[in-house]
Simulated assay, not measured.
Amino acid sequence: MAGNTSVPGARVSARLLAIIGAFDDTHRVLRLSAIAERAHLTLPTAHRLVGELVDGRALERRADGTYVVGPLLWEVGLLAPVQAELRQIAEPFLHDVYAATLATVHLAVRDGDEVLYLDRMSGRASVPIVSRVGSRLPLYCTGVGKVLLAHAPPDVQQRVFASLRRITPHTITQPAVLGAQLERVRREDVASTVEEMSLGGCSLAVPVRRREAGGEPEVVAAIGVVVPSLKRDRQRLMGALQVAARGVGRILGA
Rank of each mutant, 00 (worst) to 15 (best):
N4G: 03
T5C: 00
S6R: 07
R11I: 02
S13Y: 05
S13E: 08
A14P: 00
G21L: 06
A22L: 04
R28N: 08
L32P: 09
S33D: 14
E37T: 13
R38T: 13
L41C: 09
H47A: 10
L49H: 15
L53S: 11
E60Y: 09
E60I: 00
R61G: 06
D64W: 10
G65H: 06
T66Y: 04
Y67A: 06
V69Y: 13
V69Q: 10
P71W: 12
L72I: 10
L72Q: 08
L78R: 15
L79N: 04
Q83M: 09
L86K: 12
L86Q: 08
L86P: 04
I89K: 12
A99W: 01
V105I: 11
H106M: 07
L107A: 06
A108Q: 03
D111M: 07
D111Q: 13
G112V: 05
Y117H: 15
Y117A: 02
M121A: 11
R124S: 08
S131R: 03
G134Q: 04
G134A: 12
R136G: 03
R136L: 13
K146Y: 10
H151G: 01
D155Q: 06
A162W: 14
A162N: 09
Q174F: 14
P175T: 08
P175S: 09
Q181L: 08
E183L: 13
A191K: 07
S192N: 02
T193I: 01
V194I: 15
E195G: 07
P207A: 05
E218T: 12
A221M: 06
A222Q: 07
A222Y: 01
P228A: 09
S229A: 08
L241P: 13
V243W: 01
G249I: 01
